[in-house]
């Protein structure tokens, strides 16, 4: 009985402590931020190490099979083969990251953004129903809270928290993500909201013109370019609800960025002096015509056997 009473007292104390922590955090007390910052500073080297060690394993998972051979030569050859495969996969990984980086530099170069490139070192757990990633650059590299994050195709997210050597990025697919968007060409404006997947919903602010499938969306930009710089490609319209009775037009958008394959991203530390307008609208792929081969056949006067 005494034990039960002690357990209940302990439970009450711990519940009060938890509620105390929640209240402190909601009131914005700095001590709580310090806890998180300290925790992230400690965890960051582990995440880096995990990312470096698991980088080939992540891709290798389905490929590697262990054969129970005993002969030395076979084992040696297998080890060599695995090593070469691993090198090849690492190379492929590096090539893929290089391609992503090139895309980002092209995008940032066209718009005149000043960027800081970073590698993704951790994908946030969905356990918290949020879509986040951690990158390996932080305040030491000039990254600050509420800066735009780009992928090679366009928007990736926004910097949510910054630590000295890492930063937490809220992906554009997160349900709490909101961004002011405008349609390239018509300049109609609206608000884009994440849905937890690669698709997002757009709510236009006026009904004067209609939105149609294939329309490209760009970011509107914020005051002093934070959190969002203008002109970043967001996605394209996949379906539009233009029903007559609706108060505001809504549309479903597909992001250009594939959030599950992010390896390299760039944080825009300073926007361009002038608005890039529609300069970053992705070019539609052109179909290369296949030449038709024409064969002329002249019948011979005598039939062949």
């Amino acid at each position: 009985m005494r034990n039960g009473g002690r357990a209940r007292l302990l439970l009450v104390i711990l519940i009060v402590t938890s509620l105390f922590l929640i209240t402190l955090d909601l009131r914005g007390v700095k001590v709580i931020d310090g806890f998180k910052q300290g925790g992230q500073t400690v965890m960051s080297p582990f995440q880096r190490a995990g990312s470096a060690v698991l980088s080939p394993v992540k891709n290798f998972f389905s490929d590697v099979t262990h054969l129970g051979r005993t002969r030395n030569q076979i084992e040696k050859l297998q080890a060599e083969n695995a090593n070469l495969k691993s090198k090849l996969i690492n190379r492929k990984n590096a090539d893929a990251q290089l391609k992503q980086l090139k895309g980002i530099l092209d995008l940032a170069g066209t718009a005149g953004y000043k960027i800081v490139n970073a590698k993704v070192i951790s994908h946030g757990s969905s356990q918290s129903f949020s879509q986040t990633i951690v990158i390996d650059s932080g305040s030491n590299a000039g990254i600050k809270k509420n800066m735009t994050v780009l992928s090679q195709y366009g928007i990736a997210g926004v910097v949510k928290d910054v630590y000295p050597t890492s930063a937490l990025i809220l992906l554009a697919s997160d349900p709490s993500f909101r961004i002011g968007a405008r349609i390239a060409g018509t300049q109609q404006i609206g608000i884009l909201t994440g849905r937890g997947t690669r698709s997002a919903s757009l709510q236009l602010l006026d009904n004067s013109t209609t939105v149609k499938e294939g329309d490209v969306l760009l970011s509107r930009g914020s005051i002093a370019n934070r959190p969002f710089v203008p002109g970043v490609p967001l996605g394209y319209v996949t379906s539009a609800d233009n029903s007559a009775g609706a108060v505001a037009q809504t549309a479903t958008i597909r992001y250009y960025t594939n959030f599950s394959t992010l390896g390299v991203v760039a944080v825009v530390v300073s926007g361009s002096a002038s608005n890039p307008g529609d300069a970053l609208v992705p070019v539609k792929p052109r179909v290369t015509p296949i030449p038709t081969v024409t064969v002329f056949v002249t019948p011979s006067p005598t039939p062949t056997k």
Binding site: I15, S18, L21, L24, K36, G124, S130, T132, L168
Partner: peptide
Amino acid sequence: LSQTAAGPFGQWTLIML
């Protein structure tokens, strides 16, 4: 403490407790 925790600090503490 995890940087990926979306809610206020203490939410997971209370729930897990």
